[in-house]
């Protein structure tokens, strides 16, 4: 088990290094433009070159990346080119806003999808068609449209919920819940569309397996066969889909945040990119990778617990 964790952790570290390096490499092609943007309309070739030297952007890419990496490993992600604020705290603050809509959405997605998927796979017939219909609606309607539609209905027409804005959990829990309700619903509908179909498919496959028949011949109850045996075996592949779902939700959240004017990761990344705030962009990338690594590791750990064969690899 320990070597299993070590291996997964190693993969995560490689991923982090590779993604930050590639981003760095790609961004390095635009350093000159960024310098010009910072200087504004008065930029000349001389002042641009001077700024490049001052920022150290004229050094070889590998040297710059190494520099950045060593500071980052000590927890120093630099300061914003524009605001001079340290990168790490502002990135974390924005990340928490985004996570505060993703995490509830993910939990809801897992619970609803499992119930809906198992229900469809074990009841069949009309129940199955209803569940499939729910999935299809979630698939067919783009999240962006769903978000705007819900805002129009619940915020503009009915005025039940705020259309935009974010209240931190610590300030006012009730207001926090109201501010995340519609975004969470939008993400959950998209997530359930995908996950419920996955759970349903895996459950149908598992319930047709030989061992299920053999367990039935021993007089074991239907509940135990469905929950303890089939669902547990279906859980491992479904969990892998779930971790990909998290990544997808993270992307979707970037757009959804914008609809609701939530001060999350998306708008932060967008502004930093627009301004060419290189240290902030790198910080955003690094924390994004760390998050993905943590999620993947957690997935692998639960997978190892669910699926005894996985522990060996």
């Amino acid at each position: 088990m320990i070597s299993y964790i070590a291996k997964r952790l190693g993969t995560g570290i490689v991923l982090a290094l590779l993604v930050t390096f590639i981003t760095f490499l790609l961004l390095s092609t635009s350093f000159q433009d960024v310098a010009r943007t910072i200087l504004g309309p008065s930029a000349t070739d001389q002042t641009t070159a001077a700024l490049m030297t001052a920022k150290g952007w004229d050094r070889p890419v590998l040297v710059q990346y190494g520099d950045w990496l060593f500071s980052a490993l000590r927890g120093d992600f630099g300061t914003s080119v524009y605001t001079s604020l340290p990168v790490a705290p502002s990135v974390i603050q924005r990340l928490l806003v985004t996570l505060s809509i993703i995490v509830p959405a993910l939990i809801l997605t897992a619970v609803i999808s499992t119930l809906l998927g198992v229900w469809a796979a074990t009841r069949g017939g009309a129940v199955d068609r209803v569940a499939q219909g729910i999935s299809l609606i979630g698939y067919v309607v783009p999240g962006l449209l769903l978000a705007i539609g819900l805002v129009v209905i619940f915020a503009v027409q009915l005025k039940w919920l705020p259309a935009t804005g974010y209240t931190p959990l610590a300030d006012d829990p009730a207001a926090w819940i109201r501010s995340i309700t519609i975004p969470v619903i939008v993400l959950t509908i998209g997530g359930v569309a995908n996950m419920a179909a996955q759970v349903r498919g895996r459950m149908i496959d598992e319930l047709r397996r030989d061992y299920v028949r053999t367990l039935r011949t021993r007089g074991i109850s239907t509940t135990s066969i469905v929950i303890r045996h089939a669902l547990r075996n279906a859980g491992s592949p479904a969990l892998t889909v779930m971790s990909l779902e998290f990544i997808q939700m993270f992307g979707a959240a970037l757009i959804i945040e914008n609809v609701f004017a939530l001060p999350g990761y998306g708008s932060f990344a967008f502004n930093a990119s627009l301004q060419g705030d290189i240290p902030v962009i790198l910080g955003i990338t690094a924390f994004g990778v760390i998050l993905v690594t943590v999620v993947n590791l957690a997935t692998d750990l639960v997978n190892g617990w669910l699926n005894p064969k996985a522990r060996q690899h």
């Binding site: 991923l15 993604v19 981003t23 790609l26 961004l27 990544i247 997808q248 993270f250 992307g251 979707a252 970037l254 757009i255 990761y265 998306g266 990344a269 967008f270 990119s273 962009i281 955003i284 990338t285 994004g288 990778v289 993905v292 993947n296």
Partner: peptide, 11 residues
């Protein structure tokens, strides 16, 4: 494993 949309914005 990396959120594509974030990468598109960053780049």
């Amino acid at each position: 494993t990396f959120p594509g949309l974030l990468l598109l914005i960053i780049l």
